[in-house]
Amino acid sequence: MIENPGSAPAITLVLVDDHPVVRDGLRGMFTAEPGFEVLGEAANGVDALDVVGRHDPDVVLMDLRMPGGGGVAAIAELTRRGARAKVLVLTTYDTDSDTLPAIEAGATGYLLKDAPREELFAAVRAAADGRSVLSPAVASRLMTRVRTPAAPADSALSAREREVLVLVAKGTTNREIAVELFISEATVKTHLTHIFAKLGTKDRAAAVAVGYDRGILG
């Protein structure tokens, strides 16, 4: 993050989209909003790897379908390289079949381009803090893509695990969950491990998506 004299550090971004007009619009939005700094842009996933490598941003706003290198492959490669940046997918497609692969590849979250600007700003801030970002509106659209078999009776979430998952869906950190439920962070991590195993997921964002699909989250 870039330090601004007399204020909190700015969240640094790289914008990745094959449409110059979209990049210009996003740059204008974030430049006009205090607390953000756009460091660079890329028109495809291949160029994004170079730009992210040079600038080391806090957050990457990544489109998925781009000529010359798609977003999912770029996310997977950034994850493989151990990039510090959190990737927030921003796409037009509300039934994009790349949604879950993007999250599984390492994306922190998934938003649609018609999201209100305040929602986008909040999502970028959450991503910079390491919190998963998957709004109910997006999750409901994912239901046509997420088709996980019904969970066996013995893998149903306990009441406490449901409470934890609800808080995860709100973007709550492990520490905040521990305070909210009067348990230790270690216990929160144990609950998350059980939740991931029961839902057949690997991380918080995917667990939230499956939670909405199965009706665990309303």
Score class of each variant (00 low, 15 high):
Met1Ile: 04
Ile2Ser: 14
Ile2Thr: 15
Ile2Gln: 15
Gly6Leu: 10
Thr12Gln: 07
Val16Pro: 01
Asp17Gly: 06
Asp24Thr: 14
Leu26Lys: 12
Arg27Cys: 06
Gly28Ala: 15
Phe30Tyr: 13
Phe30Met: 11
Phe30Ala: 12
Phe30Cys: 13
Gly35Arg: 09
Phe36Glu: 14
Leu39Met: 14
Gly40His: 12
Gly40Ala: 14
Gly40Val: 13
Glu41Pro: 06
Glu41His: 09
Glu41Asp: 13
Leu49Arg: 07
Val51Lys: 06
Val52Arg: 06
Arg54Glu: 13
Arg54Met: 08
Pro57Thr: 10
Asp58Tyr: 05
Val59Ile: 10
Val59Ser: 07
Leu61Gln: 10
Met62Pro: 13
Arg65Ile: 09
Met66Tyr: 12
Met66Ala: 11
Gly71Cys: 07
Val72Cys: 09
Val72His: 06
Val72Gln: 10
Ala73Arg: 08
Ala74Phe: 06
Ile75Asn: 07
Ala76Cys: 04
Leu78Gly: 07
Gly82Cys: 04
Ala83Met: 05
Ala83Leu: 05
Ala83Asp: 10
Lys86Phe: 02
Tyr93Leu: 15
Leu100Ala: 02
Leu100Thr: 04
Pro101His: 10
Glu104Gly: 00
Gly106His: 01
Ala107Pro: 02
Ala107Arg: 03
Thr108Ala: 14
Gly109Ile: 00
Gly109Thr: 00
Asp114Ala: 10
Asp114Gln: 12
Pro116Trp: 03
Glu118Lys: 08
Glu119Arg: 11
Glu119Gly: 06
Phe121Trp: 13
Ala123Arg: 06
Val124Gln: 05
Ala128Gly: 02
Val133Ala: 04
Val133Thr: 05
Ala139Ile: 01
Ala139Lys: 00
Ala139Glu: 01
Leu142His: 01
Thr144Glu: 02
Val146Ser: 00
Ala150Gln: 11
Ala151Met: 11
Ala151Trp: 03
Pro152Cys: 06
Ser158Tyr: 04
Ala159Ile: 11
Glu161Ile: 01
Glu163Cys: 00
Val164Gly: 02
Val166Thr: 03
Leu167Arg: 01
Glu176Ala: 03
Ile183Leu: 15
Ile183Tyr: 12
Ala186Gly: 08
Lys189Phe: 14
Ile195Gln: 14
Lys198Met: 11
Lys198Arg: 15
Leu199Ser: 12
Lys202Ile: 03
Ala205Lys: 01
Gly211Ser: 02
Asp213Cys: 05
Asp213Glu: 14
Gly215Cys: 07
Ile216Phe: 08
Leu217Gln: 04
Gly218Met: 01
